[in-house]
Design a protein around this nucleic acid. Structure first.
Lengths: 201, 201, 201, 201
DNA sequence: AATGAATGAGAGTTCATTCAT
DNA sequence: AATGAATGAACTCTCATTCAT
C-alpha cells in the first residue's frame, strides 16, 4: 500500500521544516555545535525522525546548503547580459542583489562557513563553486557589454570587476552579519556601481 | 626558585609555536575539529603541556584570535588621515592593505569564522569589533578629507565608503580563500580605489 | 470475514519464506547483526509485515531454530536401536547422518550459536537439548546392542560413545563451515565408525 | 618524562584484566551483547579507559581471540611427530589436549563464535586458521609415523584422521559447554584414540 | 615544567517496535 | 493484511580536562 497523497504532502512539509531549522542552526552555531537533537527539537519532531528524512548529519548539511542555492540561483541570475542599456541593467541587477543579500542573511552565513572551510566541506563547496562560476561570468559579460558601449571605463578587466563585485556583496553580508536586515543595505547600491567604473558625466 | 631568563625565553618560544599552529589548525578545520591533541602534535609537544600555556581550549582560541590582531592592527592603521594629499595617501593605504590581506590568509579565515558566528565567539568578536571601529573611522576620516579637497566625489557618506571598502577586502579574502597567495591580489587595487569615488580627469 | 483457503495458503508460503531467509541470515550474521529489515528485504516483503507473522525478533529466531529441528529430528532418529545386525545398522545410520549434516550446514551454524551461547538463548537451547537427549540415548541403545552382540568392543560406556559420536558430527560441521557441501564429508564415515570401537577381524 | 617502570607494570596488569574480562563476556554474551561499558565495569575501570588500551571494540575482540591463542598454541603443539613410539606419543598428546580443552572452555566458546561466523570475523578467523593449519599437519605427521610403524591402521588418510580428531575435540567442547569443567572429559581419551585406528592385539 | 593515563559527558547512529493509514 | 513513518533506548567512540608521576 503506497503512501497517500496526503501523507506525502505531510512528509514534504516536515522535511522542509527540518531543512529550514537546520539552516538556522547550522548558520548560527556551525556544523559541530548543531546537534541532530537540536534540529529535531526545533522542528518539533523526535530526533530519530530526522534520520527518516536525511541519511545522516552530513547529508542534512549538504541539502541545507544545496537546496537553498537551487532556489536562489535563478533570482541571482535574473538579469540580461545582452541588455540594450547595460548600465541600466547593471543598476537594476545591483538593486536586486542587494535586496536579496539583505534578506537571506542566515543562509549566507552558512555559505560563508562552507567557503571558509572549503577543504572540510569539499562537496558543498564544489556545488557553490559551480554556481559561482556561472554567476561571475554572466556578470562579466554584462560588464564587457558596458565597456564596449562606453558606459563603463575599460582599464579593469570585466572578470576582475565581476569578482570584485561578488566579493563585495559577500563582504558586506559578513560585515553586517549582526545587523538586523534593514535599510543600511540600500546605502551600498551607489557604492557597488562604482566598482564597475561608470563613466560619469 | 625563579625561572632563569633562558627558561623564560624557551617557554616563550614554545608558547608562540603553539599559537602559530593553533591559528593554522583552527582556521583550516574550525574550532571543534581542532583538538588540543592535534595542536600539541603539530607543535611537537605533549598535549598535556598545552594546558601549561593556555588554561583551556577556549583561551587558546581567544589568544590565537587576539594576539595576532594586536600584531596586525598597527600595520592596518599605518596611514595618515590628515595627509596633505588624501588621494595619494588612499592609494598607498590600499596598496598596503592588499599586500597584507594577501599575506595573512590563514589568520583571516579565523577572523571570518569569528564574525560568521559572532554569537558563539562573542568574546573574540568583541575584540575584533573594537579594532574594526577604530579602523573604519580612521579610514572614514581620510575619505572625508579627500571629499573636502575635491579629490573624491561626495555623494556617498565617508563612513559608508569605509565600510564598503573593508567589506570588500574581507570579501576578496574569502573569495580567494583557496588561491595561493599571489598576484591576483594586485589586480584588485585599481578596483578598490573606485569604491571611494575618485574624481577622474 | 474469515480468510479464504487461498489466503491462508498464501500466508503460509510467505511465513515459510521469512523463516527460510531468517535461518540464512541468522546463521551467517548472528542474531544482532540480522535486522528485521534485512530479513524482510530478503523475503521480498516490507519489514512491517514480519510482525504480522512473528510477534517480535526473539520469536522469529525461536521459530527459525525450532521448526527446522522438528523437520530434521525424524531424519536423524531414523534408525532401529533393536536392529538384528547392530553394526550394519550403525553403518547405515552414520551414512545417513553424514549426508544430512553435509546438507544442512546453514541451519547447523544456527544451532552452533545457540549451543555456544546457551545462557543467552536459553529457551532455544532447551528445545535443542530435549531433542539431543532423545538422540544420544537412542544411539546409546544401538551401541549397547552392538556391544552385547560382540560386534563392538565394550571398554567404553555406550553413552560416552554416543556423545563422542554426536560431538564429532558437530565438530566436523563446525570445522568445514566454510567448505562447500561436498565429498569431503564422505571421507569421514569410515572414521566415525571407529568411534564405536568395532571388533575388526 | 617517560613512564616509570612501575607505571608500565600497572598498565600491563590493567590491560590483562580488561582482556580477561573481555574473553569471559564475549564468550558468554557474544560480540554485540558485550558492550564496552560492561567490559569496563567488569574490569573495575572507567569506560573511557578501555580506549586507552584498545583502539576500538573490534581491536579488543581481536586481541581477546589472538593473544590467548598465542599462549595456547605451544601447549597444543607440545608433542613430537617423530617420536620413537608414535602410539605412545599419541596417547600422551590426547591426554594433554583433553586436559587443556577441559580447562579453557570459556576461550573456546569465543573460538567457536569466530569459526561459526568466519565471514564476519574474517580477520580473527584467519589467525585461527593459520594455527589450525600447523596443528593438523603436525598431528597428521605423527599419524603417518604410526601407520608406517604398523601401530595404526592405514585405511584412512593421516590428514583425515587429524581433522577428525581436532573436530572431535571442538565438538566435545561445544557439547559440554554447559558442564562444569570436570572428569567427564577424561572419559573421552579412550574414545579419541579410536579415531586413529589403533591396531589392537 | 612535562607527560599521558584516567575520566565521563555528549555526540551520531542503529534498529526493534508501535501504530495510523 | 500490508506498509513504512515515528520513536527513543542503547550503543560506540571522541575529546577536554584533571592529576599523579
Amino acid at each position: 500500500m503506497p503512501l497517500s497523497g496526503n501523507q506525502i504532502e505531510k512528509m514534504k512539509v516536515k522535511r522542509d521544516k527540518i531543512l529550514e531549522q537546520a539552516i538556522i542552526l547550522f548558520s548560527e552555531h556551525g556544523y559541530n555545535d548543531t546537534t541532530i537533537s537540536k534540529v529535531a527539537k526545533a522542528s518539533g519532531i523526535s530526533f530519530g525522525s530526522v534520520f527518516t528524512y536525511f541519511e545522516n548529519k552530513e547529508e542534512l548539511f549538504h541539502h541545507a546548503v544545496v537546496e537553498r542555492l537551487k532556489e536562489l540561483s535563478p533570482l541571482l541570475l535574473d538579469f540580461d547580459p545582452n541588455a540594450e542599456d547595460p548600465y541600466k541593467e547593471l543598476e537594476a541587477m545591483i538593486d536586486k542583489h542587494i535586496r536579496l543579500f539583505a534578506s537571506v542573511g542566515t543562509y549566507l552565513r552558512l555559505v560563508t562557513q562552507v567557503i571558509g572551510q572549503h577543504q572540510r566541506f569539499e562537496r558543498q563547496f564544489k556545488e557553490l563553486d559551480r554556481f559561482y562560476y556561472t554567476f561571475r561570468y554572466k556578470i562579466a559579460d554584462l560588464v564587457a557589454k558596458g565597456q564596449s558601449s562606453g558606459q563603463l571605463r575599460s582599464e579593469v578587466d570585466p572578470l576582475t570587476s565581476s569578482i570584485a563585485y561578488t566579493s563585495f556583496l559577500m563582504g558586506i553580508r559578513l560585515n553586517l552579519a549582526d545587523q538586523p536586515e534593514h535599510d543600511i543595505w540600500s546605502d551600498f547600491a551607489p557604492v557597488a556601481i562604482r566598482l564597475f567604473g561608470p563613466n560619469l558625466p
